[in-house]
Amino acid sequence: MGERDVPEHHSRVRESYDAVAEEYAARIGGELAYKPLDRALLGALVEAVGPGAAIADLGCGPGHVAGWLAARGARLVGVDLSPGMVALGRREHPEVEFRAGDLLELPAANGEFDAAVAFYSVIHLVTEELPAAFAEARRVLRAGGLLLTAFHVGEEVRHMRDWWGNTVDVEFHFRESGVMVRAMVEAGFEIDARMERAPYPEEAETRRGYVLARAI
C-alpha cells in the first residue's frame, strides 16, 4: 500500500491527529502515571524480552509509552500515521527513533523487533483490516516476539467531529476481546494472556481490554 492508495479513513485519522497533536500530548502524555495495570503489563513486556531489546510502538502518538519503555532499557522505534505526532515525539523523546507510517504497511524490516505494543491504535481500523494489521505486526517481529495490544471493549463505533475544540473526522471502534484474539491468531500469533478492566477515574468511561500474544 503506497501513499497514493491509502484508504480515505486513514487520511482522516492522520489529519485529525495532526490537528490535536499538541493538545493530545498535554492531556494524555502523562497518563501512565495513573494507570498501574498498564505500567505492570508494559514492565512485564520489557522484562520478558530483556535489556536492550528492540521494541516497536505501533501508533505511538506523541511517544509517551515509547519514552516510558526506553527509560527501562529497551531500544524503541515509534511509528505513527500522523506527521504531527511524529514531529512531537522527536521533540519530546529524543531517545526514541520515530518513523511515519501506516499500520497496514509498517516502515520496518522483517523480524526487526523483539516486541511491539499497540495501545489504542487499532481502534481506528475497520474490523476487516485487523488481520492485515496484525499480519504486518507479525512480519516485523522475530519468531517468539511479543505483541501487547490495548483497546476499548464493546461493539459500538464512536464518530468524533470535535475534539477539544478542534475540527476532526475520526472513528473509534470498540471491540470485544474475542474479535481481537481471532484476528491475532489468524495473523500468526498464539495468545499468552488476555484481560479486561474497568476505567480509572481519570479516563473516559470505557472498559479496557488487553491481549498479549506471541509470534509463531
Rank of each mutant, 00 (worst) to 15 (best):
Y34P: 05
A40L: 15
V46C: 14
D57M: 05
G43L: 01
L58C: 06
L41Y: 00
L37V: 09
L32T: 02
G43Y: 00
A48W: 00
D57G: 13
C60G: 02
R39E: 12
P36H: 12
C60L: 04
L37H: 14
A53G: 08
A40R: 10
L37D: 10
P51A: 13
A40T: 11
L41R: 13
P36W: 06
D57N: 08
D57K: 13
G52Q: 13
D57P: 12
V46T: 07
Y34R: 12
R39K: 12
A56H: 07
Y34V: 05
Y34L: 05
A54C: 09
E47H: 09
Y34S: 10
E47I: 02
L41S: 02
I55L: 15
G52K: 14
L41F: 00
A54V: 10
A56Y: 01
V49D: 14
K35Q: 15
G59T: 06
E47M: 08
G50C: 14
V49Q: 06
V46K: 12
V46L: 13
V46Y: 10
A44I: 03
L32E: 01
A53K: 07
E31D: 13
G52H: 07
G59C: 05
G59Q: 10
P51C: 12
I55R: 04
G30M: 06
P36I: 03
P51K: 07
E31L: 05
C60E: 08
G59N: 04
V46P: 09
L45K: 09
G52P: 15
L42H: 04
G43T: 02
E47A: 13
A53V: 07
D57C: 12
E31I: 00
L42S: 03
V46I: 10
E47T: 12
L45D: 03
D57A: 11
L45Q: 11
L41Q: 10
P36K: 13
D38E: 06
L41K: 09
L32V: 00
D57H: 07
R39Q: 15
L41T: 08
A33V: 02
A56W: 01
L58A: 07
D38C: 03
A33R: 15
G30P: 04
K35F: 03
G50P: 08
L42E: 01
A48P: 01
A48E: 13
L42R: 11
G50Q: 09
L58E: 02
A54L: 14
E31R: 09
G59W: 03
A53S: 15
A53E: 04
A44F: 02
I55F: 05
A33K: 11
L45S: 11
A40M: 07
C60S: 09
G52A: 14
E47D: 15
I55G: 06
L41G: 06
A48T: 01
A44C: 14
A33F: 00
V46M: 12
L58R: 08
G43I: 02
P36A: 13
K35I: 00
K35P: 12
